[in-house]
């Protein structure tokens, strides 16, 4: 109970101290520094050497103890200065399906006007174990942080903890960064049979039947949309150097098919959304032109990657009154 309260307090304090941002330079206000476990061992060692030196009246041991103590202090500054040279920018977050983990790409800039940061950087989600360690001297940007998701909808990126033990492992420098960006989680696709509706609202249990597709009836040439099946590409024209052009078939343009959410509330709804997600993916992969109807939200029939994203986004956001993602 008490610890819960405490952690809440800490979170509130962190929110005030390190507000969300997309581009963070580490500096005095967002860096924490404390001796590591080895740092404490080192201090104990210094005391032990001091006692040894005093008891044997041995100045050399005393000098060693003082030197190590001096090094401890120097290390404090070096550690801080090194860590404060970092700048972290969040990249474009991917769209995971519920239950998968989202890739949050972090672009880490190690060189500032003042210096270049070195050493290993340990990355973890706030309160979790270290997920990955990167060597700043051999860095390849971006660094992908996996954020697990559980349910559909917009989800805030949890605080990401970056820590470094540079230069001697005596101090741990760390920061808990909050990025002003959300992850849009699609519903997890649930395999089922595809149920579509035509314009008149008539249910079609078997799904779009093959003769309705009219793949053979060539209609016209259009600009290729990313996501369209490659077998629609008019390769002859492409070979002539006219750019990516795809064939449009009469069947797919004339007959519009719709996906529709039948239940609007209750526990059944999530399962239906999962099924719809599967159907969207299925129809999209087969190159159909389809629309989506979710209560008040309508996604007009279209094709391609963008359309798929629109549909999945509508599914993800259904029931969330928040401002839509992007």
């Amino acid at each position: 109970m008490f610890s819960k309260h405490l952690s809440l307090k800490i979170t509130q304090w962190l929110d005030k101290r390190i507000p969300p941002a997309t581009d963070v330079s580490l500096h005095r206000r967002n860096i924490f520094i404390f001796p590591s476990r080895f740092g404490f061992l080192f201090l104990v060692l210094c005391v032990a050497l001091f006692i040894l030196g005093t008891n044997y009246q041995n100045n050399l041991i005393l000098i060693l103890a003082f030197f190590l103590l001096g090094l401890f202090l120097v290390s404090l500054f070096n550690s801080y200065l090194n860590f404060s040279g970092l700048r972290i920018v969040i990249g474009k977050v991917g769209y995971p399906f519920a239950g998968d983990s989202a890739n949050v790409p972090l672009w880490i800039e190690t060189t500032t006007k003042k210096q270049t940061a070195h050493g290993r950087l340990h990355i973890a989600l706030y309160g979790k174990n270290v997920q990955l360690s990167v060597d700043l001297d051999r860095l390849t940007n971006p660094v992908d942080v996996a954020v697990p998701t559980s349910s559909r909808g917009p989800q805030a990126i949890p605080r990401i903890t970056l820590s470094s033990f540079y230069p001697l492992g005596l101090f741990r420098c760390w920061t808990h960064l909050q990025f002003a960006s959300t992850i849009l989680v699609y519903p997890s696709p649930h395999p089922c049979s595809v149920v579509t509706y035509d314009e008149s609202g008539e249910e079609n249990q078997e799904g779009p039947v093959s003769d309705q597709q009219g793949h053979d009836d060539f209609h016209s040439l259009t600009e290729y949309q990313p996501g369209q099946p490659l077998y629609h590409v008019a390769w002859k024209q492409v070979a002539k150097g006219q750019g990516m052009i795809s064939k449009k078939f009469s069947g797919s343009s004339e007959r519009e098919i719709w996906l529709r959410l039948t239940t609007s509330s209750g526990p059944q709804r999530e399962a239906d959304l999962s099924r719809l997600c599967f159907m969207v993916l299925e129809l999209d992969s087969q190159g159909y032109r389809f629309g989506l109807e979710l209560g008040d939200t309508l996604v007009p029939p279209a094709q391609g990657n963008h359309h798929r994203h629109q549909c999945l986004k509508a599914l993800a956001l259904y029931g969330f009154s928040e401002v839509s993602h992007e």
Binding site: N59, F66, F67, L69, G70, L71, L73, P167
Partner: peptide, 13 residues
């Protein structure tokens, strides 16, 4: 770092 620590060491000594 050692050079930085040395004055501290002498001072403490």
């Amino acid at each position: 770092m050692s050079l930085q620590a040395l004055p501290l060491c002498l001072m403490l000594f």
